[in-house]
C-alpha cells in the first residue's frame, strides 16, 4: 500500500488549510465591526483603484500557457526518472537528455516565432 506514505502529505494539507482558516477566524473574532465606504473599497497597495479586476488579458499569455502544458508533460516524465536515476546511472541520464533535447527544439522554435516578445 502506498497510501500510508501519503498520510503525512494529508496531514500537511489539513494543517495548511487550518492555518489559513484560523487566521481568518481569529481576525473575524478580534476586529471591531465599523465599516465605511473607504474601508470596504478594494485595497490596491494604497493606490486609487482603476477599473474592474475583470479585464481582458493579452492573447500572448495563452501561447505561453500552451507551451507550459507541453513542458509540464516533460516534467511529469522526469518524476519516475528521478526515483531510479542513481540506480541506472549514465544510460538513463543520456536517455533523458535526448528526451529533453527534442523538446528544447520546440522551445527554440517558439523563441524564433516570437512567442516571448511582448507588444
Amino acid at each position: 500500500m502506498v497510501i500510508q506514505d501519503y498520510g503525512i502529505v494529508g496531514l500537511f494539507l489539513v494543517l495548511g488549510i487550518a492555518f489559513a482558516a484560523a487566521a481568518f477566524i481569529v481576525s473575524w473574532l478580534l476586529r471591531p465591526r465599523d465599516p465605511n465606504p473607504v474601508k470596504n473599497s478594494t485595497y490596491e497597495c494604497g493606490e486609487i483603484v482603476k477599473g474592474d479586476s475583470r479585464v481582458q488579458f493579452n492573447v500572448g499569455y495563452y501561447l505561453v500557457a500552451l507551451m507550459f502544458v507541453i513542458f509540464d508533460i516533460e516534467v511529469l516524465f522526469l518524476v519516475p526518472w528521478i526515483v531510479i536515476f542513481r540506480e541506472l546511472g549514465v544510460v538513463s541520464y543520456i536517455e533523458m537528455m535526448i528526451f529533453v533535447a527534442i523538446l528544447v527544439v520546440g522551445l527554440i522554435y517558439a523563441w524564433k516565432k516570437g512567442v516571448f516578445e511582448w507588444q
Binding site: Y62, L63, L66, M67, I70, I73, E74, F77, E95, I98, F99, V100, I102, L103, V105, G106, Y109, A110, K113, G114, V115
Partner: peptide, 21 residues
C-alpha cells in the same frame, strides 16, 4: 516509446504555435 513521447509533444507544441500565431 519514451523518446517518441518527446517527439509527439514537440509536434503538439509546433502545431499549437502555428495555429495560435
Amino acid at each position: 516509446p519514451f523518446e517518441v513521447i518527446s517527439l509527439i509533444s514537440l509536434a503538439a507544441l509546433v502545431g499549437a504555435l502555428v495555429i495560435g500565431k
